[in-house]
Amino acid sequence: MIKPLRNALVAAAVLGSVSQAALAQTPNNGRPAAAKNVVLVHGAFADGSGWRGVYDLLTARGYRVTIVQNPLTSLEDDVAATKRALGRQDGPTILVGHSWGGTVITEAGVDPKVSGLVYVSALSPDAGETTAQQYEGFAPATEFVVDKAQDGFAYVDRDKFKAGFAHDASDADAAFMRDSQVPINLSAFASKLKNAAWRTKPSWAVIASEDKAFDQAMLDHMAKRIGAKVTKVSASHALFMTQAKVVADVIDQAAKQAAAAAK
């Protein structure tokens, strides 16, 4: 066989193999695959255990779910923890944040594995903005009371925890959340973001209509600004735990719809 012809045939065979491999990653006539990975990011004063209900529902549907344990020591530290979790994913991933976790996913969500963002009564600053700026111009929370420690960290007031954070949880669940709080370094709220993933990634928002931590107008404003597809549910700020099915359903929708949006 003439050498140039042989080389051409080899090259064609290689390209054919590459094309088949690519199609395996993008089924349905080459369209991007729906995300099968989900990374959940908790907010301030909480830890990853509150996601258990969402985790159970999503894993039952075949998703691979990873829960980030934020140290809540700084925006940089929480973003680093989230990036480590993203680094373990094997393909398209839906990144989900509750409350302060929304700030974290906004910064970390520029990772190329992230195909969509879900904000669960969550903050969503723009690049160059701080978390604290999101509260400007909106009514302050009246039942959500924070105790500041001398070292710059803060907890939700023990006596007002259920009313302000989780009024729709059982007494036992609210007490456990209250007594297992993870304090957040308040200086994190003054850190400016370098990136705003919602500017390039499709976004969804689940908003608790009885949230006492944020003004409803503030939640509506943030969701509208980022162009999120909004689902409202009657729930407290702890909706990531008390409304697990609603949250899981929205994540499921995001995983399927983000692939279509990427076409």
Score class of each variant (00 low, 15 high):
Asp56Ser: 14
Ala205Thr: 00
Ile2Gly: 09
Thr82His: 07
Gly87Tyr: 09
Ile94Gly: 02
Val14Arg: 03
Ala217Leu: 07
Gln133Met: 14
Val110Arg: 10
Gln181Ser: 03
Pro27Ile: 02
Leu72Ile: 01
Thr59Gln: 12
Trp51Leu: 10
Gly128Ala: 14
Leu5Gln: 12
Tyr119Ala: 04
Ser234Gly: 06
Val65Asp: 09
Ala235Cys: 08
Arg178Ala: 01
Val206Ile: 03
Leu72Phe: 01
Trp51Gln: 12
Lys36Glu: 11
Lys148Met: 15
Ala190Arg: 13
Val18Ile: 12
Gln181Ala: 02
Val246Gly: 00
Arg225Asp: 00
Lys229Ser: 15
Ala139Pro: 04
Leu219Arg: 00
Pro202Arg: 12
Lys224His: 07
Ala108Phe: 12
Val96Trp: 09
Asp220Arg: 08
Lys212Ala: 13
Val54His: 10
Asn29Asp: 10
Ala255Val: 11
His42Cys: 06
Pro125Tyr: 09
Leu9Gln: 07
Arg61Gly: 02
Val156Gln: 14
Gly164Leu: 04
Gln253Glu: 15
Ile207Met: 03
Val233Gly: 08
Val233Tyr: 06
Gly16Gln: 08
Asp147Lys: 08
Val250Gln: 02
Lys36Asp: 11
Met222Trp: 05
Ala238Pro: 01
Phe165Ile: 11
Gly91Gln: 04
Lys232Glu: 15
Glu143Asn: 11
Thr130Glu: 10
Lys160Gly: 03
Phe161Cys: 13
Ser19Phe: 13
Glu76Asn: 13
Ala248Trp: 01
Thr131Val: 13
Ala132His: 13
Gly53Lys: 14
Thr130Lys: 13
Gly116Ala: 14
Ala190Tyr: 01
Val247Thr: 07
Gly87Leu: 12
Ser49Tyr: 01
Ala85Lys: 02
Val39Leu: 08
Thr59His: 03
His221Ile: 00
Lys256His: 12
Phe214Cys: 05
Ala122Tyr: 03
Trp100Asp: 00
Ala122Ser: 09
Ala154Thr: 14
Ala46Trp: 06
Val79Gln: 07
Val233Ala: 05
Phe176Ser: 05
Asn29Met: 05
Gln216Val: 01
Tyr119Asn: 02
Val96Glu: 10
Gly16Val: 06
Ser121Gly: 12
Ala228Cys: 08
Ala174Leu: 10
Asp147Phe: 05
Lys232Ser: 14
His42Ile: 04
Leu72His: 00
Phe165Gln: 12
Val10Tyr: 07
Trp204Arg: 07
Asn70Cys: 08
Gln69Trp: 05
Phe161Arg: 14
Ala261Val: 08
Thr82Leu: 04
Lys201Pro: 11
Ala244Glu: 10
Ala174His: 06
Ala35Val: 06
Ala197Asn: 06
Ile67Val: 15
Ala163Thr: 11
Pro4Asp: 02
Lys232Thr: 15
Asp147Arg: 12
Asp215Val: 02
Val110Asn: 13
Gln69His: 12
Val68Gln: 04
Ser74Asn: 00
Gln253Val: 10
Ser49Gln: 03
Leu239Ser: 05
Gln25Phe: 09
Ala238Lys: 01
Val145Met: 10
Arg52Ala: 15
Ala258Ser: 15
Gln89His: 07
Ala12Met: 10
Ile251Thr: 06
Gly91Ala: 04
Leu123Ala: 13
Asp168Asn: 10
Ala34Cys: 05
Lys232Trp: 06
Leu72Lys: 00
Lys148Arg: 15
Phe214Trp: 08
Val14His: 06
Trp51Arg: 11
